[in-house]
Amino acid sequence: MTELDIINLAKEFLTSRSIGFVSPSTIGREYKGKVEVIFPVPETLDPNVAVVDPPDVRVLVNLENQTVELIDQM
């Protein structure tokens, strides 16, 4: 699976759940066959917003079965 395939799976997952994100994304760490994909949230682009916490949305893409799960951030 290419990085583009991984990113596209992550985008499809977030879009299907109406979770806001913007591109570009970055590939994070790999956890036992799962790859972290990180997208900024749209509010980070608004100069009138002082603090965005968390500033990104993160998902894990399973390379074996191509499932995606949201990483809960506090």
Rank of each mutant, 00 (worst) to 15 (best):
M1G: 08
T2G: 08
E3W: 00
E3I: 06
E3C: 00
E3K: 06
L4K: 11
I6A: 01
I6R: 02
I6N: 04
I7C: 02
N8P: 07
N8V: 05
A10R: 04
K11H: 00
K11I: 10
E12H: 04
E12T: 08
F13G: 04
F13N: 01
S18H: 09
S18T: 01
I19E: 09
G20E: 14
G20M: 04
F21I: 02
F21L: 01
V22K: 08
V22S: 12
S23Y: 00
S23I: 08
T26L: 13
T26K: 13
I27L: 12
I27M: 12
G28H: 10
G28A: 04
R29W: 03
R29M: 10
R29V: 07
G33H: 14
K34I: 03
V35E: 10
E36R: 15
E36H: 15
V37M: 10
V37G: 07
V37Y: 12
I38T: 12
V41P: 12
P42E: 13
P42G: 08
E43Y: 01
E43R: 04
T44E: 13
D46T: 05
P47A: 03
P47W: 06
N48D: 13
A50Y: 09
A50I: 10
V52E: 05
V52K: 03
V52A: 11
D53F: 15
P54S: 13
P55F: 02
P55M: 10
D56E: 14
D56T: 13
V57Y: 06
R58L: 02
R58E: 08
V59G: 01
V59W: 02
L60S: 00
L60T: 01
V61T: 01
V61R: 05
N62S: 14
N62G: 02
N62Y: 05
L63F: 01
L63P: 06
E64D: 11
N65G: 03
Q66T: 07
Q66F: 06
Q66V: 02
Q66E: 09
T67K: 09
V68C: 02
I71W: 04
Q73H: 09
